[in-house]
Design a protein around this nucleic acid. Sequence first.
DNA 1: TCTGGGGTCCTAGGACCC
DNA 2: TCTGGGGTCCTAGGACCC
Length: 424
Amino acid sequence: MVEPVYALIDCNSFYASCERVFRPDLQRTPIVVLSNNDGCVIARSADAKPFVKMGALFHEIRGDLKRHGIVAFSSNYVLYGDMSERVMSILEARFPSTEIYSIDEAFADMTGLPEPLESIGRQVQAEVKQKTGIPVGIGIATTKTLAKLANAAAKRWQKQTGGVVDIRDPVRRDKLLKAMPVEEVWGVGPRMRAHLEGMQIRTAWDLAQMDAWTLRKRFNVVVEKTVRELRGVACLEIESEIEPKQEICSSRSFGKRLRELPPIQEAVTSYAMRAAEKLRNQQSLCRRVRVSLRTGMFNPAEVKYANGILCQLPYPTDDSRLIIKAVQAGLKQVFREGFSYAKAQVLLLDLCHKNEYTPDLFAPEQPVKTERLMSALDAINNRWGRGTLQPGRIAKPAEWAMRRELLSPAYTTRWPELMVAKAR
DNA sequence: TCTGGGGTCCTAGGACCC
DNA sequence: TCTGGGGTCCTAGGACCC
């Protein structure tokens, strides 16, 4: 029996790296990327990290950025999504099986590949860099949790490791476990860290020494599995199948506070459109929708209100019109006069596969002509860009639209925004 | 003025059944 | 003195992830 080997490949400062690929002039300039509405910092290039905290408010640090010569970008998810696909397709070609874990991370199965695995790692790293311009780090170990930790080590000691770390050797593994604070372990968040602190568990090593069963009784099975994985017992496997989502969410903060119902109705309609698009994209129908609305939650001076409501649909459907109708009815119920609203959310729940659900004998079903209409809608929006066809009530430019003052071009997805190179 | 958006899994507790 | 017990399904909420 061959021992399983897992790799975790992770793009360094992914959003910042994407921006940098298309701005060679910023090769040596620190970069930060901002959240939607240019609210706070969500990504930093390595050279920006010493100067900018994660989550720092843009309006508060504008001066600091300027002083340190740091360049800020609004987030450009179209660009990052496209770059991610390019990176992932290289990994998929290089490894027998992969699991795309997030926009910038993937697990890969390295079981049985020819030694030394570390040099395979370095080859993949070089290939991704050469073909996409994105730097990646790679952690190699006998479980997914350990591979994540090895990857964290590759990042932490970038200079010494060149970004590839193999900790299959128990001596190296234990050395790393002792060096890593427990909150670096995958699955240990702030709450768990606090609990563990109270039990004198401070490093990954301390956690690995605990009795798994005791932790399961005290907390839950997730912690139990984490402990076993840290000890090298694989409890988690590579999940290459892309399972359809069990819930679909479209939620966004408004570009400014909204007090009146009509612009909120517009925003919610457009969120519902987007959610329904995702729903059809994975061939699902939904039976219920939740719409929720809230004021700002952070500013103590603001009067707070948050409310949401579940709406039943007449039958399992992927019809944007029905979903919008349900959501609008719900919105009227949760909306109250007199508040400054900051954010709304549309959540599609109770999803089932289009062809795999058993219709209720007496309940109505989605008519066939709806399918044709929705496919036409999706085809047009795919070809000409999202929002080409949308309900007439959505005004442009929208009052509630996101603030993105520092947005980079859609370099890879719109012909007019392609980079231009000139020979001298 | 100003703090992202989109998910998953697990557990506890209530409703309901026999 | 003294609540039946065990199972399933559903929902809300917590914790975590990137």
